[in-house]
């Protein structure tokens, strides 16, 4: 690939039933590009968890996926409440998910740890009251 491929998604904040569509779309695109299944799985997990977090915790946002010859970068930006204590949020099992969301199967407090585990590099930039941007890289 000579030029980077860029895909942009807008994630709606109030629709649980559509959450995951952006991740599915990226997964299908990577499949069509013939990428290694293991890489596709890592991208699918990391992006889905980020996408769901935007819906549950931040009232939606935008996702940009940049694909170059040797890297897939996912930038998830929201203007939600922000994360006060990022170290705490990164702990396995820590969750502020409300009851109605837990009833759907979310709230194990494993999303951010999964994103960290399945990406090769992750950065969280968050300001309370302003929003959160999560950047993840997965090397090809």
């Amino acid at each position: 690939m000579d030029e980077n491929l860029v895909f942009n998604y807008t994630i709606s904040g109030d629709d649980f039933t559509r959450a995951g569509e952006a991740s599915s779309d990226v997964k299908n695109k990577l499949k069509m590009m013939g990428l290694d299944n293991n890489i596709i799985r890592k991208v699918a997990i990391a992006m889905y968890e980020g996408e769901i977090n935007m819906v549950i915790h931040a009232n939606g946002g935008t996702i940009t996926v940049e694909i170059s010859a040797d890297n897939i970068r996912m930038i998830l930006a929201d203007t939600g409440p922000g994360i006060a204590d990022i170290d705490k949020a990164m702990e396995q099992g820590y969750s502020t998910a409300p009851e109605e969301v837990r009833a759907l199967g979310f709230g194990a407090g494993m999303g951010l740890p999964n994103m960290k585990k399945y990406s090769d590099h992750m950065e969280i930039d968050s300001t309370v009251g302003i929003g959160t941007t999560v950047t993840m890289d997965i090397h090809i």
Partner: peptide, 25 residues
């Protein structure tokens, strides 16, 4: 039954038994 655990542990081609039946599943 917890989706983010299933997300990271579900084996490819697995048969997934769960009580969580919704679009997120």
């Amino acid at each position: 039954d917890l989706l983010s655990i299933a997300m990271s542990k579900a084996p490819a081609e697995g048969a997934w038994v769960t009580v969580m039946g919704n679009k997120n599943t």
